[in-house]
Amino acid sequence: MGKYLKRWGLSFQRPDKRAVEQDAEAVRIWREETWPAIRARAKVEDGEVLFADQVGIRSDQVTGRTWGAKGRTPVVRRAGNRFSVNAMSAISTAVGCTSWSSSNTALSGTGALCVAALILTRSGSLDQWPL
């Protein structure tokens, strides 16, 4: 089957993932109107735009299915100790640098604001942001 697909000009690829809920019109407005206005304001005010994101990583082993003898449930041994690390990062559009911070506590509410303030302090932008 692969030979036929290649002949038809197709290749085996990893698909790009997009949210089903994505609104094409909202994306167009962001790209053509909202983002240019933000960028222009930052330039006028000698400011900096930071794009930030947060991620959480856990040490849990994800065990799905595995092969085993019929009637005998396989046992997968794993450590019982689990830990997690949360990280927040920001990329500056002005100078192209990245700042980040990590924590072993949840980054929600006050914790996220503290990490954001740390990132802004490192980037030299904290004085531009009224907290």
Rank of each mutant, 00 (worst) to 15 (best):
Gly9Pro: 14
Ser101Asp: 07
Leu50Tyr: 06
Thr105Ile: 14
Thr73Tyr: 01
Ile119Gln: 02
Ser59Gln: 01
Val27Pro: 10
Pro130Gly: 01
Arg72Glu: 11
Gln128Phe: 04
Arg41Met: 02
Gln128Glu: 06
Gln61Val: 14
Gly2Gln: 10
Gln22Thr: 15
Pro74Trp: 00
Ala94Ile: 03
Gln22Asp: 15
Gly111Val: 10
Asp46Arg: 04
Ala19Pro: 07
Ser101Phe: 10
Lys70Ile: 12
Arg14Val: 14
Arg78Met: 12
Leu107Asn: 01
Trp8Ile: 13
Leu131Arg: 05
Leu131Gln: 10
Ser92Asn: 05
Arg72Ala: 04
Ile38Ala: 03
Leu50Thr: 00
Arg122Ile: 02
Ser103His: 08
Val62Tyr: 04
Asp60Arg: 01
Gly56Ala: 04
Trp35Ser: 04
Leu120Asn: 00
Ser59Thr: 15
Ser123Met: 05
Thr110Glu: 07
Ser92Pro: 08
Arg14Lys: 10
Leu118Gln: 10
Thr73Arg: 03
Trp8Asp: 15
Arg82Ser: 12
Ala116Asn: 01
Val95Met: 04
Val95Tyr: 13
Gly9Thr: 13
Val27Cys: 09
Ser125Leu: 05
Val76Gln: 03
Cys114Thr: 15
Ser99Thr: 12
Thr105Asn: 12
Trp100Cys: 04
Gly124Met: 02
Gly68Ala: 14
Arg82Leu: 12
Arg14Ser: 12
Gly47Arg: 02
Arg82Tyr: 08
Ser101His: 11
Trp8Glu: 15
Val85Asp: 02
Ser108Tyr: 09
Arg28Asp: 09
Ser125Tyr: 09
Tyr4Gly: 09
Ala52Thr: 11
Met88Asn: 03
Lys6Val: 15
Thr110Gln: 07
Gln13Leu: 04
Gly56Arg: 08
Glu48Asn: 13
Val44Thr: 11
Ala117Phe: 09
Arg7Thr: 13
Arg28Gly: 00
Ala94Gly: 08
Ala19Asp: 05
Ala112Glu: 10
Gly47Met: 01
Trp30Ala: 07
Asp23Ala: 02
Ala37Gly: 06
Val95Asn: 13
Arg72Gly: 00
Met1Tyr: 08
Arg122Tyr: 02
Met88Pro: 12
Arg31Lys: 10
Leu118Thr: 13
Arg31Glu: 14
Thr34Ala: 09
Arg65Met: 09
Gln128Val: 07
